[in-house]
């Protein structure tokens, strides 16, 4: 994968009989931050999970349409899903460090992909923690348990862990919803830095967050993308009434 963009054409997703995503078309540009917003249950998390085939783990989940990530059809039979997940990293709502040391958390992915040399692993760990803005706080306690970190630090550790796999695209599913405003601000600054090297797709319920950090925003409603446009446009002058109703809090 040498490109960092995502192209979705005519995508439908079913959980058994339930039609969860309906005819979605979307072009996500590389080195941009794209935010997905919408009420709970609208399909935004379901959609983001398509990009690294996390939905494969759900029974009766069926995806149709063309999903091209980094120029490759990720639902082709020949796709190596493990490699896909290396290229498309993910950070979740709740920080989920492994119950092991800070070092081992970050070294987990490179070890999985076969890196054995200690000096190289050290470099990857330091580099990833630097990029995640955590190195300064943890460099002298790398061998301590990751579970001793604060919530904000744990989330940045999870970002470092994702970055250690050297992904091209970073998916973030409400990465700051469990964090205080200071940690949230740190992670938002980080996202702004990271987009120089990665393509970032973020699900957020925090509309101010979407306006602060994203370049494009997609508004989802009942499994459909109602509007996808420049973030400033969406939040100041949306084209669709449904978007207006949702972002002004008059939805429903």
């Amino acid at each position: 994968m040498d490109k960092f963009d995502i192209s979705v054409k005519n995508c439908d997703l079913y959980y058994g009989d339930f039609h969860a995503l309906k005819s979605i078309d979307m072009e996500i540009q590389e080195h941009r931050v794209t935010a997905f917003i919408g009420p709970s249950g609208c399909g935004k998390s379901t959609f983001i999970r398509i990009f690294n085939r996390m939905n494969d783990l759900i029974e009766n989940c069926r995806v149709t349409g063309d999903i091209i990530v980094g120029g490759e059809d990720i639902y082709a039979k020949s796709t190596d899903v493990t490699l896909l997940r290396k290229n498309v990293g993910m950070v979740f709502q709740k920080p989920n460090p492994f119950p092991m040391t800070i070092y081992d958390n970050v070294a987990f992915a490179p070890r999985t992909y076969g890196v054995k040399r200690k000096t190289l692993l050290d470099d990857i760990v330091e580099n990833s923690l630097q990029k995640a803005g955590l190195w300064g706080e943890v460099h002298d306690r790398l061998k301590k348990s990751a579970l001793g970190l604060s919530g904000g630090q744990q989330q940045r550790l999870c970002i470092a862990r994702a970055l250690a796999a050297e992904p091209k695209i970073l998916l973030m599913d409400e990465p700051t919803s469990a964090l205080d405003p200071i940690s949230t601000g740190t992670i938002e600054d980080l996202i702004n830095e990271l987009k120089r090297h990665y393509t970032i797709v973020i699900v957020t319920h925090n509309m101010q967050q979407a306006t602060r950090i994203s370049d494009e925003t997609a508004f989802f409603l009942m499994g459909e993308v109602i509007e996808f446009d420049n973030t400033k446009k969406i939040f100041t002058n949306p084209s669709k009434k449904e978007t207006e109703n949702y972002i002004t809090g008059r939805f429903g």
Binding site: Q208, F235, N237, I247, T248
Partner: peptide, 9 residues
């Protein structure tokens, strides 16, 4: 209240 869209304008 962080007005958005038409409200903001």
């Amino acid at each position: 209240e962080h007005p958005m869209a038409t409200d903001f304008r």
